[in-house]
């Protein structure tokens, strides 16, 4: 049986997390991977998906009511085809987490969330307790509905610009859910920085920054210099220093960049859960006993207000 990957996109371009999800799908069974693009005027997304390595069929459900990716409508559309598949995979993103449990419930299947490893076609590893433990779970359901932690699966290398001869595009009907939410509005932060979940470098600030002004004047120049995404600890977000979607941790974003620079972050377990898989971790904190140093490759104890400007000058 084939595997269905539900693409994440903005009706113009495919989100990079979809590549990680396809990589996870290929670990389960690489022989028949189908990608569903549900959207409005989203043909370009489907064309992009056709070019991806490992993809055999792209299904396009194109209708105006799918524009906003409202979970109720996408669920109804997925349900028209879900029974043809052994596995349905989504990214463990805000969109995937919103949608996957609806699909699973309607299929009367348990959902396995945030998988970080494929053991076999029925067995997966996932973190629990904010990453303080890793559970190996086996599903006994005929259809497995999974969300995939994107940072745990390296994207497959991109294929050439023309679709492989075997990949094909198929249009399917877009179903309507009669009892659904409606989108009123959406405010997305400007994209002049790399996205937090995708960035190769992340600079994160904590309560030690002291104010949103310092976040801007002290931390942002370092992020600019490093071409980094900006993150924050929960304490910094709660204090209003940084926007909600910058939060790194158990209940915020999970990141695993090449370089993670934690500035003025003490390192609560909930924060560590969101960044401890980064390749190289740098911690800058005035408290030498701060738990962040227990996971840092390079720790620098001192006053961040002197250290960070020095770094900006020296990079």
């Amino acid at each position: 049986m084939a595997i269905l990957v539900i693409a994440e996109h903005d009706n113009r371009a495919l989100s990079a997390v979809t590549l990680n999800v396809i990589a996870a799908a290929s670990r389960i069974d690489a022989t028949h991977i189908h990608v569903l693009v549900a959207g409005s005027s989203a043909r370009s997304v489907a064309d992009e998906a056709l070019k991806l390595a490992g993809v055999h069929t792209v299904l396009l459900a194109d209708a105006p009511h799918l524009e906003a990716h409202i979970a109720e409508h996408v669920e109804a559309t997925v349900l028209t085809i879900a029974k043809l598949y052994s596995h349905v995979l989504l990214a463990a993103s805000s969109q995937g987490k919103n949608l996957a449990p609806r699909i699973a419930a309607k299929l009367d299947a348990a959902q396995i969330g945030d998988i970080v490893e494929v053991v076999d076609a029925d067995t997966f590893k996932r973190p629990i307790y904010a990453g303080n433990a890793v559970a190996t779970v086996r599903s006994v359901d005929p259809i497995k509905v999974l969300t995939v932690r994107p940072t745990a699966f390296e994207a497959l290398a991109a294929q050439g610009s023309s679709p492989p001869a075997s990949a094909r595009l198929e249009e399917i009907a877009a179903a309507v859910n009669g009892n659904s939410a409606q989108l009123v509005g959406r405010t997305l932060a400007s994209r002049d920085r790399p996205e937090l979940g995708q960035a190769a470098t992340v600079v994160s600030g904590g309560r030690g920054l002291g104010s949103s002004q310092n976040f801007k004047n002290v931390l942002e120049p370092l992020a600019d210099k490093l071409g980094a995404a900006l993150g924050a600890s929960r304490a910094a977000v709660d204090a209003g220093f940084a926007p909600n979607d910058a939060q790194v941790g158990q209940t915020g974003k999970i990141v695993a960049p090449q370089l993670y620079v934690a500035v003025g972050i003490s390192g609560a377990i909930q924060h560590l859960a969101g960044m401890k898989d980064s390749k190289v971790i740098v911690a800058i904190n005035k408290d030498a006993e701060a738990p962040i140093f227990s996971v840092a490759d390079y720790g620098l104890v001192g006053d961040l207000f002197q250290i960070v400007p020095h770094m900006v000058a020296g990079v």
């Binding site: 190996t136 390079y298 770094m311 020296g314």
Partner: peptide, 30 residues
């Protein structure tokens, strides 16, 4: 339950690295 938990284990621990004395040493190491 539809899911069987086969095993629960500690995550791979990350070993603590080193403390560097100053910014120059940090940038050099990076």
């Amino acid at each position: 339950p539809r899911l069987q938990t086969l095993r629960v284990e500690e995550p791979a621990t990350r070993k603590a690295g080193i403390k560097v004395p100053d910014v120059a040493a940090l940038l050099g190491a990076l």
